[in-house]
Amino acid sequence: MKVSDLILLSIGSMLFFYIQLWEHQIVTPLYLLLLGVCAAYGVYRKDINMTHIAIFILVLNTIPHIIFEIGIIDYVTPYQDQLIRGMLIYGIQLLFSLITVITLIFRVQISRVLSKSKHIALTRFDGIFHWLYMYTFTIYLLALLENIAWAYFEMKSWTLIYDNFEGLIYVAWALCCGTLLAMMITSTKSNHHDEKEEAIS
């Protein structure tokens, strides 16, 4: 099976899986768990590129999740102030999405700073992940602008992003998980191929 077919199959499977769940309390922890599994698999396979990609995404998604789960925003601003509250919620997500984009664009350079491994290199998957987070960055930005229009300018009919927010983000997460799954599978195949070549030689 070609790599492109494998990626499409993996992404399609993850999209179908996420659509069946579609609950924040389930999807977010599951997404973080899948990222953790991919990072652990990368360590097991001694694939430094996979490990770093998964860890970078995991850390930059875990921090905002912790911020929201422990209720920092509730302490900072009252629930009634929807303008400031919305700006904080979407602003934090926007910031971490931007940091993720930058981190993934310069992933190889950052990996080389963190590790002296000679196997650090640009993979065929590096070009996919930052686009997914550029998409989430766009959604967070639109949500932030929509919240300002809704709360400050009293445009109460502007709720398109708000009404579909979780679904729009979950699509990106499913695509990310599908790509990670394809990366794990191709890594396994690559290792098997290398082992065969070593056995022949």
Rank of each mutant, 00 (worst) to 15 (best):
W150K: 14
L132H: 13
F56D: 04
S115W: 11
Q93M: 13
F106E: 07
G71D: 07
F56C: 12
R107G: 04
T136P: 04
S97Y: 01
T62A: 07
Y152A: 08
I102D: 01
S115M: 13
L144P: 02
F96L: 09
K46D: 12
L88C: 03
P78M: 03
N61R: 05
W150C: 07
N61S: 13
T136Q: 10
I89S: 10
L98G: 04
L114I: 08
S111I: 10
F56Q: 09
R112L: 02
Y79H: 15
F96E: 09
K116F: 03
F129M: 09
L144A: 02
I89M: 14
G86L: 08
K118V: 11
F125V: 05
I148V: 15
E154K: 13
Y133P: 03
W158Y: 08
L88F: 10
G86S: 08
T136A: 03
K116L: 10
F68I: 00
F153P: 00
D81V: 12
V108H: 05
L114R: 12
S117N: 09
Y75D: 05
T62Q: 10
G86V: 09
K46I: 08
I120F: 05
L141P: 02
V76W: 13
L122N: 04
K116C: 09
L98D: 04
A151Y: 11
V113T: 10
D126W: 01
S117M: 06
F125Q: 04
I128M: 14
F96Y: 14
D81T: 06
I99G: 00
R112D: 07
P78W: 01
S157C: 00
G91E: 04
F125S: 04
T123M: 01
E146Y: 07
T103Q: 14
D81R: 11
M50W: 07
R45F: 02
Y75K: 00
L88H: 03
T123A: 05
Q82S: 13
F96K: 13
T100F: 02
I53H: 11
L144Q: 01
L144Y: 03
A149E: 15
I120E: 01
K156C: 06
A143D: 05
I55D: 02
Y79S: 14
N147P: 02
K46R: 15
I92N: 07
V108Q: 04
L144D: 06
D81E: 09
I53C: 10
Y135C: 08
P64D: 06
I72M: 03
K46A: 12
Y79G: 09
L144T: 05
E146I: 01
M50L: 15
L141F: 14
M155N: 03
Y152G: 00
S97N: 13
L98S: 08
D47V: 04
I110N: 13
Q82L: 15
M134Q: 01
M134Y: 06
L114Y: 08
Y79T: 14
F137A: 12
R45W: 02
V113D: 06
N61K: 05
Y135V: 02
F56M: 15
D47K: 09
H119T: 09
Y90E: 14
Y140Q: 15
E69N: 10
I120G: 01
L104M: 08
L98N: 07
F106I: 06
N49V: 07
